[in-house]
Design a protein around this nucleic acid. Structure first.
Lengths: 189, 189
DNA sequence: GACCAAGGAAACCGATCTGTCTACACTTGA
DNA sequence: TCAAGTGTAGACAGATCGGTTTCCTTGGTC
């Protein structure tokens, strides 16, 4: 058993390539070349490119949410603070050198039918992120945690679009100010 | 001179195909088949697929903004009202049968480098939409029209993502409620 | 009637796509 | 020692990609 399994190796490189160049634009040959595996090995682990895409999206969901939660909780110590530092974590993400938008928004663009399995994973990811925000809102005793989560999530989505389409690296700062408005509204009553 | 020029005919069909299936996933052969023109004709009017994509995005920008402005102004009669009916126009868009997200967000996903000409047109489109909102905010005597436009725009972007990725047809309703908060804040002082 | 630009149909080009297959090397456990 | 499993390298298949070219028709215009 190698230190990193071939499967993980393939997913890891596919992740980078799909994220930077898109799904349709990234060929299998490029993936196996970067990952340093043979085509046979890839097709031993994944029956098709689509299956690889699915596995890649699932991996990205895991990595992304873990990172978001870790950063949010590292920067803020009370639930109330964390509703705010959520935006700081997002800000840090926007300013990573490899930032290329939200992989799930990007995937939804290429697999636009809602029933498409790849698209479904994207919707699921968005739901899970919102669930996390909701749990923070609940711990902070917001008046309507679900609605606050929906609002903050929507603001973050808007900031992501702003950051990616227009290259606005400060999109999260405005989003934070806007978010505070709703956080305060949900706290005072 | 035909009623509809071949050029417009090609752009029109390319628009539908690119919007529904994406840019990389849509082949030239499919476009010429749908448009009912020969490949020769297409390459007489456009030197490359990329040039066609660029022309298609420009056309979409024109059509989209005209429609957004028309609907917004049909539904609201004062500038203040129109800041609000903007969201109703967006709501109607989300509920069109062919809704498939924002074509410019989608294009930015496939052409992710900011310097890519196709991506630049997307950024320009977003700027123009924001300029329109800003002009409404100015007419409504908002305290900081530019900032209000940035805020409402960000909320709309978030709603678009919500509507497309998760298929939430009511995303614009929440966005409207959220938008009103900032509109009221910018009006009272 | 002569000319010409525009378009249509389709062959063709080289490249690339996803996916399959063969041949061979290496490790590991029985 | 041998069999099985896993890997590599890479040829190959068949389709499709963007794009070029050839040949032919059509519809004006002088």
């Amino acid at each position: 058993m190698p230190a990193i399994s071939k499967r993980e190796q393939i997913i890891s490189h596919a992740l980078t390539l799909f994220y930077q160049h898109g799904f349709n634009a990234t060929g299998i040959d490029k993936i196996i070349k970067d990952a340093g595996v043979s085509k046979k090995t890839l097709y031993n682990h994944f029956h098709s490119k689509d299956e690889l895409i699915l596995a890649t999206l699932r991996k990205r969901d895991e990595l992304f949410r873990n990172n978001l939660m870790r950063e949010t909780e590292r920067l803020g110590h009370t639930p109330r603070e964390r509703l705010s530092t959520l935006f700081d974590a997002v800000h840090a993400w926007f300013n990573e050198a490899t930032f290329s938008g939200c992989m799930f928004i990007n995937a939804s663009a290429e697999f636009s039918e809602l029933e498409n399995p790849n698209h479904l994973v994207c919707a699921e990811h968005k739901r899970l992120v919102r669930d996390y925000i909701k749990s923070l809102a609940q711990q902070a005793n917001a008046s309507d945690p679900e609605e606050l989560a929906n609002q903050l999530n929507l603001i973050i989505e808007g900031a992501i679009v702003n950051a990616h389409v227009e290259g606005n690296k400060d999109a999260a700062k405005r989003a934070k100010v806007m978010g505070e408005v709703f956080i305060n509204m949900a706290m005072k009553d």
